[in-house]
Design a protein around this nucleic acid. Sequence first.
DNA 1: CGAAGAGTTGATACACCTCAAGTCTTGTGG
DNA 2: CCACAAGACTTGAGGTGTATCAACTCTTCG
Lengths: 236, 236
Amino acid sequence: MAVCVNCRHHGLCVHRVAIFSPLSAEESHRVAELIVHKEYHKGDFIMTEGEQLSRLVIVQEGQVKAFRSTADGREQILYIFSSGDFFGEKNLLRNQPASYSVQALVDTCLCMISRSDFQQLLRAHPEIGMKIMEELCRRLERLETAVESLGARDGDARVSSVLLEFAERYGEEHPRGVLVRLPLSRQGIADYVGLTRETVSRKLSSLQAEGVVELIGNKKLLIIDKTALEMGSSQD
Amino acid sequence: MAVCVNCRHHGLCVHRVAIFSPLSAEESHRVAELIVHKEYHKGDFIMTEGEQLSRLVIVQEGQVKAFRSTADGREQILYIFSSGDFFGEKNLLRNQPASYSVQALVDTCLCMISRSDFQQLLRAHPEIGMKIMEELCRRLERLETAVESLGARDGDARVSSVLLEFAERYGEEHPRGVLVRLPLSRQGIADYVGLTRETVSRKLSSLQAEGVVELIGNKKLLIIDKTALEMGSSQD
DNA sequence: CGAAGAGTTGATACACCTCAAGTCTTGTGG
DNA sequence: CCACAAGACTTGAGGTGTATCAACTCTTCG
């Protein structure tokens, strides 16, 4: 694992991260000194449930999934972290082992700050604490929505709303709708919305048959009738 | 709604709340001056999804449920807040409308601090911010577990784990096991674990038939074989 | 004591899972 | 650049757990 190529080419990774926005230019440079870079390949594990982590990890480039494994071999995906997102804060703030595993979805470059540097930074800049709090609140709200989805909505609604979520985060304009590059495989989507691979496949096929979406290979999808998805995602 | 009787009888409610523990005795008294008390009866709504709240709310005495309502009339309970817990922080930190409704499960006394007083307090005592962050992390972890439960475990496992959760929080020693005062009705438990009233009832009956628990009326339950629940909660 | 609400139990329906076969996609080496 | 193999995805048939609907019982409280 070499030093991150991106950081050398594209300037300081510190600038990509919202929680460090309160820092001045000079301070950013000083923080950049504290950062360790690491590259991972698609499929590599970055951390494992139960592990005692001692760094804050920031996604510089790429995409990772955070998930829990159940006794019977299923996975439940909790978060998808992309460029600018961070994780490991729980371990630093409460000195607790990781509550989920993290695995690279594509080749990924990460930035890491040691516990002591992070805590010093927090003390020196309380506004960073505020930024982190805001992010934790955003994350709480996402999980609240996930709980509502998994607990009170049927499969169709869950698939519709995950497509809308992906469109929001990874979609781009297209003459006939919104083109979405899916961050997850069918199995991954299934692990995210609490269904099986086969069921997700069927739901997507019927959305296509209804003319709501168009499947483009396995990694892309075109949303033609966004309104239909919005109707469907809030359950009939 | 009169001034809270409990606060007058039992001293300052500020002392019950972990996030204010960094305050000195003198400061606690000053904070107590800022607090408004309100009483609610069982069933009263304390806040409603979408509402723009302008106070931090602390549960002084009693119990409330936080939940979301779906279009088809189902409810998904997200949290049960008891004495010492707080809510509304999301609205104050990010200036966002409430993402859930809150309703009193029993007669309840609440303490409220205005947005501006709270923000002043946060600025003056960054350690309070740290305490809040810790609590947010705890809440995140609870929701992560809930997502795993709802997404990847079957009904039996969910009922077993909710019983263990209640035992942890509301259980008391008993010669034959752990006696649990249930904070929720059957419908409430169903809304918490994503099942229906009838299914919860059946699961509880069969746990009783297996000798794992003993139902005592509708509001109490004796856990006889805790190990069996622990086995069952992690799925077979 | 009676009525209303909460809980239980049974019968049936249906959504999703499981298992299995087949197809499409992707990446690799000749 | 094509051929092939491995992996990912799709589709079908059948089984299962949970929802639904309905009748009934228990609890609570005026």
